[in-house]
Amino acid sequence: MKPNRNLIFIVVALALGGLAAVVAVRYVQNEVAARTKDTGETVTVAVPKQDMEPGVVVSEGDLAAREVPVDLVPADAVTPDNHNEYVGRILRAPVREGAPLAASALVPLYDQFSRVIKAGNVGYTLEVDETNSISGMIAPGDHVDILLAVEQDQAGTRVLPLLEDVNVLATGNRVGDAPMAEDTQGFSNITLELSPQQAERLTVANKAGSLRVMLRQLEDRDPFNLDGLTQKELLRTSRGSQGRTGDSGVEFIIGGKG
């Protein structure tokens, strides 16, 4: 009885595949061993548990210990031994989850706050009331849009989109995600990160009319594409939409019978 040639080919192919897999695994192991030998032993450093943005105040719960090859560790790396010196400081640059944390990326909470502002931008403090602080619900790291309302002779009040997707650096004296003390939960100003041109526009707008701050959903960065609206246009739309849903998508219910 002659052996089945197809079966032999299959067996040989499986054997060669297994051999290739073993060789590949050993090659990877040898490369890792060689790299470890070249770079030396790993060291234990403090790393963020998640991605963190500039302006965030680092707390002890944000950090974890991790073994990292020496050649990947910055000279001023934060370690489990010295991390207490840096807890409560502000990040001046973004950091990635699991990446070694450099001490130079952190600044004291009330020292050189300007370090958290991106190069080319400015910090602009805007006074707010209960309405424009969204009842005190705005927090550092949020993004807001700002509308300008001005009075016009013929059209009445006109609302114009002024600034979009603006980063909030601080609310009152609160910076980053540090919890607020019970007696400092209210605030009368917010500090925004703006370009110089935006700061110029906001300064003029603050004198020209009243401002309204709108809080964005945390991850929403899309433009709203607002064109502006006058009181006259709004009332005209309202009159054409009485008792029904008009083109604006808002139902106006006026009056009623008992």
Rank of each mutant, 00 (worst) to 15 (best):
E219S: 08
L202T: 14
D222A: 14
T203S: 14
P196V: 05
L211I: 01
R201G: 03
L194C: 01
G209H: 00
R239G: 06
Q217Y: 02
R239D: 14
P196S: 02
K207I: 10
L229G: 02
E193A: 14
K207L: 11
G228F: 01
A205Q: 05
D227W: 01
L211T: 00
T237Q: 09
R239M: 14
S195V: 07
D222M: 13
L202A: 11
G209V: 00
P223A: 06
S210N: 01
P223Y: 05
A199T: 13
R201S: 11
N225K: 11
D227I: 02
G240S: 08
V204G: 08
Q242E: 15
E193F: 08
L235A: 06
L215Y: 01
S195G: 09
M214Q: 12
N206Y: 02
M214E: 15
L235E: 10
L215P: 03
L226C: 01
P223E: 06
G209N: 00
P223C: 04
A205S: 10
V213S: 03
Q217N: 04
L234Q: 09
R216D: 03
E200M: 13
Q197W: 07
Q197P: 05
L226R: 08
L235C: 01
L234M: 14
Q198K: 08
Q242V: 15
Q217F: 02
L235I: 13
L229W: 04
F224Y: 12
Q198W: 04
R236M: 10
